[in-house]
Nucleic acid binder design. Sequence first.
RNA 1: GCGCGAGUGGCGGAAUCGGCAGACGCACAGGACUUAAAAUCCUGGGUCAGCGAUGGCGUGCGGGUUCAAUUCCCGCCUCGCGCACCA
Length: 853
Amino acid sequence: MLEFHDFLIPRRVMAKGYDHHELEAKWQAYWEEHRPFRAMNDSSKPKFYCLDMFPYPSGSGLHVGHLEGYTATDIVSRYKRMKGFNVLHPMGWDAFGLPAEQYAVKTGVHPALTTAQNIATFKRQMKRVGLSYDWERELSTTDPDYYRWTQWIFLQLYKRGLAYVAEVPVNWCPALGTVLANEEIVDGKSEVGGFDVIRKPMRQWVLKITAYADRLLEDLKLVEWPASTLEMQKNWIGRSIGAEVDFALADAKGAIRVFTTRPDTLFGATYMVLAPEHPLVDVVTGAAQKAAVTAYREAAARKSDLQRQELDKEKTGVFTGGYAINPVNGERLPVWLADYVLMSYGTGAIMAVPAHDERDWAFAKTYQLPIREVIQGGHVQEAAFVETDRGTVVNSALQDGSLSLNGMKPAEAIPAITAWLEQKGTGKKAINYKLRDWLFARQRYWGEPFPIVHCPACNSPVPLPESALPLVLPEAQDFKPKIFVPQQTESGHRGTTGTVDVMEVFDAPLARVVSQDVKRLWRETTCPRCNQAAQRETNTMPQWAGSCWYYLRFADPKNAKQLVDPAMERYWMPVDLYVGGSEHAVLHLLYSRFWHKVLYDIGVVSTPEPFKKLVHQGIVLGEDNQKMSKSRGNVVNPDDMMDQFGADAVRLYEMFMGPLEAMKPWSSRGVEGVTRFLDRVWRLMVTEDGGLSSSVVTAAPSVEQQRLLHQTIKKVSEDIDELRFNTAIAQMMVFTNEMTKADQRPRALLEPFVLLLSPFAPHVAEELWAILGHAPSVSQQTWPVYDPALTVSDRLTIPVQINGKLRGKIEVAADTARDVVERTARETVAEWLQGSEPKKVIYVEKKLVNFVI
RNA sequence: GCGCGAGUGGCGGAAUCGGCAGACGCACAGGACUUAAAAUCCUGGGUCAGCGAUGGCGUGCGGGUUCAAUUCCCGCCUCGCGCACCA
């Protein structure tokens, strides 16, 4: 019996046109069984490789941000299949990584177990969304059958001298117990967890990415990537062209070599600066300055990188007492020490030209060093004049007349002086890069082991033979790294003060692993070269390793003999469309490109670049327009959304929110909106009890209806090609709104429309296709083709303007001659013309008439 | 500071080879159906003035080019992203 309050409580039971739970389960089961999304290896069809950046399977499952990119590529993949392409649309797992290991440290649960569970969750959610992946090609970076090839690539790098061990200052994160790459540090803290990071010299594996700097820069011309991403890669590589110049020491043997991009200002050098760590510091320092120099060097060493990078701070330095000789004019220049010069860039030493460099200018002002103008055009006593393109060289000639740059533009002076230096043997043209070699080792358990042993007898790292691969990650029981676990400080930041002396000696987890079969340390082994006792490398590879080449393995995921079969590689590569977050704009993409070029050089791959077209999906914000986060409580869970609205509605809303690449807020109301749209589509052809509606007729559509259909086919096709899914959906809404008004709905319109809808809302489309009386699957139908003649109207509405202001509109036949259009227009705006003749009449065919009076 | 990108109704957004600004959706208002509601369907709307026909003003701000500017040019402002003493 109904109570009064039953009438007051709003029912959340939606009067939906269809039961999305039932319908999605039905079609997902069908796809599971019939596998219509498999990529064929032997096909005469043209290929299309459509790839998502594979995820790290975190414990929190998919979020709506993931889904945006995945839905976009899914629509493209489904569309391309219907257009006759053999589509490769795979998914895998970037499953090595720190979170699972940290979870293991906390709970003792093995990372492999956590990872497997998380993968299962991700996969279940992806299937629930109806993503049309070829699951037969699924891979995980943690699978020995996969990482044996990651190790294999490392061996190739090693063989070619591109992997080497070096004692380098590294970014050590005590809280994480590992080193981090420069790129993994944000504002002096670890990107993961936000812990303090300090500099510490360590023996490390390093990859020589700098050997490929030029090609990594040059080949950016070959790809269709967002301008911002290309720009970021260029900046990261940071090529600058200039000269290396030697300044002989005045009172000692040797010379200070500097790198400069402005050799045209050589006559303006008034002092030199060495980085505090520069090896020549002891040589140039005079006895009187020894104490001050030592104090300065120690102070600099104590500063963390963060402190040294503080920009606004006053520049500091100390005079060494030594002098160097300017090679152009023989002047004695005082040599200073200052931490604004970095040991890690160029030669770690500069010639200072305060008149034409802002940093040198600030330093010269602080220490009252002379400022000498050599490029005319500014006021060098007030500020450094750095605009090379408007200025003329002055004060730059030798008395004997053997060299003069005076009167030249800097652009002319640079090659002139460089040639002079080369002739004198005191300098040469040089190119420098900001890019540094890639620190490739981590002191972690959950990563790929290095296929390397350290042999005391051979006195070098010895690579394992390829036949020994994979070197399987050994079982471990204790994941706790032996690390100093810092206390929470008052400021809320965990970590150290940045000094090295609080450090213990830290062992990587693999150093302590005991092999279960033989009850000895896993690291104890024999040298594959000399058979003497040797030690395995106990570092593991960084997470980037596995993601550097996974796109290749999808082309041939089960191959036990090769990384990828050459025929498969040639057929599928390159990736035609690659979609993923812009947070990977530099690192992942640069590292991948580097490995790809190495593989290209050894003949494993046939293309110089792996990813032809790249698109970054935008960030999805919470309903409050803030970044989604647990602490804000504004996280939208895809499972909840799909429970309530269904997978098709969620897919459609993800695409309808706005342009793919834009940052945009989630709106539950918006999801309801697209849900209404799907219900309207449903009701166009289905009755309340699920049968085919009697309004669906076989009669021929009207010309207007056909025009709308063909305009819709055109718009939807072109918009998918351009990844403009939001406007494609808007057009389908227009079509649906029109069809709703008609009570006779010709099949000839509805059937192509269902095909257009199918990449966006595949479950509903499959069901509608079946209700219309067709055998499955809609995904295997041919994409509708539009007739261009049917997309244009035979009647036109032409706006009529007076002086550019809209004053009227006329409707004419599309083929109306100009004079007729003009005459009609004049009649329409006669009261504005007031009988006088316009000064000018502008007629844009089929677009507009404008009278200038 | 430098580089890149973006600023359009109450909201998400559409329209840029210069040519009717605001498609589509959300929210809102009115109507139909209903005892009533929900759902659905129809209608309306940038803003100001006016009963209305109409007209003025409108795409961050200020200039410019043009018959015509959201679109192109110059100078600012704001926001986002990236880099940040790289010689």
